[in-house]
Design a protein around this nucleic acid. Structure first.
Lengths: 336, 336
DNA sequence: GTGAAAGCGCTAACAC
DNA sequence: GTGTTAGCGCTTTCAC
């Protein structure tokens, strides 16, 4: 049913080799023959078998991407950009989902090797990973990999991520110095997650040595909409006076805003709210979000560039790229 | 660097064949040998090359999924479920993105064949596709495919999608009969998109023969947040009296609600709003959305089941599965 | 129970 | 210019 090189060769009275060369546009084949072959291939609906090709070439033309969660807008945006950029540099992308689960991530790593990815971008799970030793399989199979969006601190490998610490620092300083807020609440998640810790560090550094400023850190289990909503709902019982609630992502910020508004508390007049990421959510909030922009496209392209570098040059320098962030001011803090 | 069957065989003084059989758990190999081989493979960090395996077995163990847009929450949810379900049935999933572009979809189809997908799920582009003849490549290469979430009307192939027409019908009837709304505005997109047309049909059918009921259809180019916001913003100039604004997806509904609220118009007190899909967005709206539930998980699993069926049984009946929808009532219509 | 041999579909030397 | 050959890493008869 499906047509192969052999079929074309037979029909044309040529050898498989010539057909192969012709189809690959090799100039060594007579132009006329090339055309003839090309035409016949089209006619017969020839589609090359990339399994066979990859096997013999020892190049699959495929890059891998491992992400924790595809429903998270941050990662779906990452996928979009990485996918697009891969195509641009002539590769195909195989995406696999770790479901924020270390064991699954290991499986995905093995799958990448089985599938002969020429390199892989890993967006690490957002839970603590005490033993990411399965990454050594990449080394033993000479497959380069880079971290993207986050990294494992005890694994020495190149990475591309945003400068989250500075991002949160700048945002906090802005709220402090320009908006004059004095009492801060940081709504964040588990302590052991790098990307959250960096935000926290930025937050604390910005407030350090400030007098007449109060800050509080509220830690929740899941950094999502529902959890944020409930947490703030409960927090409101305390009737504490807060100037601004800073969230570690936009989704939580929306949860906070909606909860506040339903209680008749005005944002930003009564209390300001900030997000992080500048995802889709930042703009579809009733009160648009002041947030920190993570330039996902830059992260995506930076990751692929870095990976391509390692694939072709076999450079082994542990390049570490920190993409600058910037803050975007919207309605949720522009009250005072 | 990377270890193959041969390496293991040499170390053990066995043949490649035996090692292969042992690793595949073939009972014909002496249990003791099997263990020995297994152990050595682990020790040496053997990872099978699925390219080679697939080539000889003529089974890649891979299914394909083509979607228009990964940033759209509907599709990312679809990816999640299909991915999960594929794993359950022992397949890997290769996702590719058509970017809502017919030409790209064709490329993706070819890529699926090149990559030897054993079957593929297609979520069609949401623009008119006058000539999806490239789908015949699947037939000529004996690769089964099924449509998911939508379909091309002039292509005869199995499909799994929600009963959008009935969904919209029920919602409209509910608003009419139970809520007593009399003037309806439907905010939808281009005329030639099946999934939108079905909604429209349901809407019109529900209102047909109703006296004292007015309906208006406003058509926009892009069914997204910004377009919906702007359109409603302009529409408000007309100062027409409208009871309910029905949107063809949740994202647009949020755009509408936010725009209304910013104009001081209360939802649902002054005007009610409905969405469609019951995506994440339906619940993160300030005013939670009354909407129609598309059971994405069922669509996902149905699509894979149908595909598996065609892969194994080579059945050729054109099964057409319409998943029932139901409406969920939330704050955005519960005013009157 | 194990090994030898053929071959999956394609490519890349090397002959002719 | 074109054909012959070998072989990518693995599986799977079929002898032994």
């Amino acid at each position: 049913m499906s047509v192969g090189l052999k079929d074309i060769a037979e029909r044309l009275g040529l050898s498989e080799a010539t057909v192969s060369l012709a189809l690959n546009g090799n100039k060594i084949v007579k132009a006329e023959t090339r055309i003839r072959v090309q035409k016949m291939a089209d006619e017969m609906g020839y589609i090359p078998n990339s399994l066979a090709r990859s096997l013999v070439r020892k190049k699959s033309g495929m890059l891998g991407l491992i992400i924790p969660d595809i429903e998270n807008v941050y990662y779906s945006e990452l996928v979009k950009h990485i996918n697009r950029y891969c195509q641009k540099v002539g590769y195909r992308l195989f995406v696999s989902i770790s479901n924020n689960n270390v064991h699954k991530e290991k499986e995905n790593v093995l799958a990448m090797i089985e599938n002969c990815a020429e390199g892989v971008v890993i967006a690490p799970v957002n839970v603590s990973n005490f033993n990411p030793d399965y990454l050594r399989y990449f080394k033993t199979n000479s497959i380069p990999f880079v971290f993207s969006s986050s990294r494992y601190e005890d694994v020495s490998a190149p990475y591309v991520m945003c400068d989250l610490e500075t991002g949160m620092y700048s945002l906090t300083r802005y709220l402090l110095a320009e908006k004059g807020y004095r009492s801060f609440l940081l709504l964040t998640g588990p302590e052991n997650v790098l990307t959250l810790r960096l935000r926290e560090n930025g937050f604390l550094r910005a407030l350090k040595n400030e007098k007449d400023v109060s800050n509080e850190i509220v830690r929740v289990q899941a950094v999502d909409y529902d959890t944020a909503s409930e947490t703030i709902h409960q927090y409101l019982q305390q009737k504490k006076k807060i100037d601004v609630i800073m969230c570690v992502n936009d989704t939580m910020a929306i949860g906070v805003i909606n909860t506040l508004m339903r209680q008749g508390i005005k944002v930003p007049e009564d209390v300001a709210v900030t997000g992080f990421d500048d995802s889709l959510f930042a703009q579809i909030s009733v009160v648009t979000l002041t947030t920190v922009v993570q330039d996902v496209k830059k992260i995506a392209e930076g990751s692929v560039d870095l990976l391509m570098d390692r694939i072709s040059n076999q450079t082994s320098a542990n390049t570490e790229i920190l993409i600058p962030t910037h803050i975007v001011k919207r309605a949720s803090t522009e009250g005072k």
